[in-house]
């Protein structure tokens, strides 16, 4: 079976008070499901890799084929946990190591 390629997305949360990990992922799943439906969301293979509430950054993983859809869905997030928020993509990379290097540089 052919291995699915993945992409890791480094995210920055633009929000006054940092939300919890669960609220953050709920917002991501809700936006993907609203835009692309449950079938579309199932093709993204979304997963939370890490989340830093103090730094308001997070890393999520997605299928390469669905990465543009995920980015479009992330742009539609306007609230997290009932508070006004925005999620910006800082970097996209094929490995977590390269992503961290990208974010540091």
């Amino acid at each position: 079976m052919k291995r699915l390629k993945r992409r890791y997305l480094g995210l920055q949360l633009d929000v006054e008070k940092a939300p919890g990990e669960r609220d953050f992922m709920d917002a991501v799943w809700t936006s993907v499901t609203r835009i692309y439906g449950e079938y579309g969301a199932s093709l993204t293979s979304l997963a939370l890799i890490s989340y830093d509430s103090e730094g308001r950054t997070g890393v999520i993983r997605s299928n390469l084929a669905a990465v543009e859809n995920v980015r479009a869905a992330l742009a539609t997030i306007t609230s997290i946990g009932g508070k006004a928020a925005a999620v910006h993509v800082l970097a996209v990379s094929g490995t977590i190591k390269a992503l961290r290097q990208n974010l540091e540089s």
């Binding site: 835009i35 543009e68 980015r71 479009a72 992330l74 742009a75 006004a84 910006h88 993509v89």
Partner: peptide, 17 residues
């Protein structure tokens, strides 16, 4: 509102829908 502003490439991706 500033919180509704998106990066240019995010706007381009939003346009895909």
């Amino acid at each position: 509102e500033p919180v509704l502003l998106r990066k240019p490439r995010e706007v381009a991706l939003l346009s895909s829908i």
